[in-house]
């Protein structure tokens, strides 16, 4: 028996909107600690990891670990039927091949049940080691979204370079090139507008912008985004989900092909 009651139902809606472009089918894993998802995109270049901790739910009951395979587009379709202020409850019976989403309006005057068929999904669960990153950039998520959007109109890849001066996003394409530098800025009135750079050593990595762009779909979940970079490691783009958990996107860097350069 599984029953998760989430007062701020819009969170779940946003989560789905954030990941459904990247991943079409995924297993949601429910355990005593929380509701989580880990999935790779079809090309195995990016990985999304979602965690909604049990404490974040108004009511969380999970008798035994359960993995529910869902088509995220279908799930998003159903969640779109929920109002933004609705309370969402996810229910599933052990051994059942369906999941039920229940939407309650804030005034409790409307209750809707949506039952969705589950699917069997073979998914590879990857172990993600805790790594020390050479550079961690925290910046307004809207700013990051804007940068990715702007750069993708110029080129296909973005080079993210972190130095003492700041973080630089650069791209180049047929029509030209672009560089956007964001400097450290903690003197703003609102903490959510701060740009904070913690750097152990300068790092510069290249990424495909289309993935970055799809990561930024999660911008509505959080005012701030944290970008963790290490050479030889995938970048982590993390959006915190208020008091509940996080959604993290991992993206493998583009690596220099140097075979042909060797003598």
């Amino acid at each position: 028996m599984l029953e998760l009651r989430l007062v701020q139902g819009s969170l779940l809606k946003k989560v789905l909107e954030a990941i459904r472009e990247l991943v079409t089918d995924a297993n949601f894993d429910c355990s005593g600690t929380g509701f989580s998802l880990q999935a790779m995109d079809s090309s195995h270049v990016a990985l999304v990891a979602l965690l909604l901790r049990a404490e974040g739910f108004e009511h969380y009951r999970c008798d035994r670990n359960l993995s529910m395979g869902m088509n995220l587009n279908n799930m998003a379709k159903m969640l779109r039927c929920a109002g933004n202020d609705d309370i969402i409850t996810i229910k599933a019976d052990d051994g059942s091949d369906t999941v039920t989403f229940m939407f309650e309006s804030p005034k409790q005057d409307k209750i809707a049940d949506f039952e969705m068929k589950l699917m069997d999904i073979d998914s590879e669960h990857l172990g993600i080691p805790d790594s020390e990153y050479q550079a961690i950039v925290r910046m307004p998520s809207a700013e990051f979204m804007r940068i990715c959007k702007d750069l993708s109109s110029i080129g296909d890849t973005v080079i993210i370079s972190v130095t003492k001066e700041g973080v630089k996003f650069s791209t180049s394409g047929e029509i030209g090139s672009a560089n956007i530098v964001c400097r450290q800025n903690q003197t703003v009135d609102k903490p959510e507008e701060a740009t904070v750079i913690e750097m152990q050593e300068p790092v510069s990595l290249t990424f495909a912008l289309r993935y970055m762009n799809s990561f930024t779909k999660a911008s509505s979940l959080s005012d701030q985004v944290t970008i963790s970079l290490s050479s030889e490691l995938p970048v982590v783009v993390e959006y915190k989900i208020a008091e509940m958990g996080y959604i993290r996107f991992y993206l493998a860097p583009k690596i220099e092909e140097d075979e042909e350069m060797k003598p």
Partner: peptide, 10 residues
């Protein structure tokens, strides 16, 4: 450049 795979990291 070529796109690396996430599988090679995790």
């Amino acid at each position: 450049t070529k796109q690396g795979s996430i599988m090679s990291f995790f």
